[in-house]
């Protein structure tokens, strides 16, 4: 057990270190930018509507009068206490904006994550067990088409077909325009999330299916599959292939979090879905550095968290690690 705990602790420490690295990199990149947020926003509504204290704090953060190292350390100190600063665009604490946006995006990303994972696994195993035959060709063709298609263009097409021509689904936004937040029904929410979630899932499937196919094809060539066939086993895919593909599939599934988060940036922009991705674009375009920094750190935390979860689950599922740790 001590072994497992040490492993977890080491992974956690690495994750924290990586997060620090991400925040520092993002900070330095923004710091290097010739687009000065205060300059860009001077005279704009965002800055005009701020209280003098807020502007003063902003200048502390982004002003040229303090060295970058000191500014980063101050940001870090605040961030560790749960204060990511004030968003220039939304005039709210960054963490509040992120929380609100993330709750919108989470619907989208979770459904796309589950759907693309399940579908990708099924298609990948189907193609891998029938390598070179028509199911394999079909799946590979689908993956090629989808991974070559810009996801935002696919979103545009779906929008054109379902919202403009057929008129059966709304054009965008998480809720109907003008509706009170509290008065929105679950059904309305769902209707607005269908197209973005569909786009994200359809694009996410390709990568998972292709990688699962490789792993499956690899497993199919192992000696134990040969032996199972020689023993006249009938449920080889269920009994042996799935069992051996499960671990790599798990890693893939958790690694796809980053891709789905990246895809949501584009898809949310097309559907004007008020999620985290759209906020990132707005923050970038409006030089809202505190918000962009916050979103970057939170997204990276999700990605690293996914990797950590995969590592830990591996230790629980893989008998070689599990029994190895028990000392047998």
């Amino acid at each position: 057990m001590g072994h497992r705990l040490r492993f977890t602790a080491r992974k956690l420490a690495r994750m924290v270190l990586l997060l620090l690295g991400v925040s520092l990199t993002a900070f330095l990149l923004m710091n290097a930018s010739p687009l000065d947020p205060l300059q860009t926003n001077v005279g704009q509504a965002a800055l005009g509507a701020m209280s003098p204290e807020q502007i003063a704090r902003l200048e502390e953060y982004w002003g040229v009068n303090t060295p970058a190292a000191e500014r980063y350390l101050r940001w870090l100190g605040d961030a560790l206490r749960g204060d990511f600063g004030i968003s220039l665009l939304y005039r709210q604490p960054v963490l509040e904006v992120i929380g609100q946006r993330l709750s919108n995006s989470l619907w989208l990303m979770a459904s796309a994550w589950v759907l693309s994972g399940a579908l990708g696994l099924a298609l990948g195993v189907l193609a891998g067990t029938r390598r070179g035959r028509w199911p394999d060709r079909l799946v590979r063709g689908y993956c090629l088409v989808i991974s070559s298609t810009p996801s935002f263009w696919l979103a545009l097409l779906l929008l054109m077909v379902f919202s403009v021509w057929l008129g059966i689904l709304p054009i965008g936004l998480a809720v109907p325009i003008g509706a009170e937040h509290a008065g929105v029904t679950l059904l309305q929410r769902l209707r607005h999330a269908i197209l973005p979630a569909l786009t994200l899932s359809v694009t996410g499937v390709a990568n998972i299916a292709l990688h699962t196919r490789e792993k499956t094809a690899d497993v199919m060539e192992r000696d134990y599959i040969l032996f199972a066939r020689a023993r006249g086993e009938t449920a080889i895919v269920r009994r042996h292939v799935l069992r051996n593909v499960a671990l790599p599939a798990l890693t893939l599934q958790f690694a796809s979090i980053g891709e789905i988060a990246g895809g949501s940036v584009l898809v949310e922009q097309v559907f004007s879905y008020p999620g985290l991705g759209q906020a990132a674009v707005s923050a970038g375009l409006g030089s809202d550095m505190p918000l962009l920094l916050g979103i970057t750190v939170v997204t990276a935390a999700m990605v690293f968290g996914g990797n950590l979860a995969a590592d830990l689950l591996y230790g629980v599922i893989d008998p070689r690690i599990r029994r190895g740790a028990a000392g047998t």
């Binding site: 990149l29 923004m30 980053g258 891709e259 990246g262 970057t296 990605v303």
Partner: peptide
Amino acid sequence: MGVPHILLIIL
């Protein structure tokens, strides 16, 4: 690899 490509490119 920890930051989605699109976000990093934007940065």
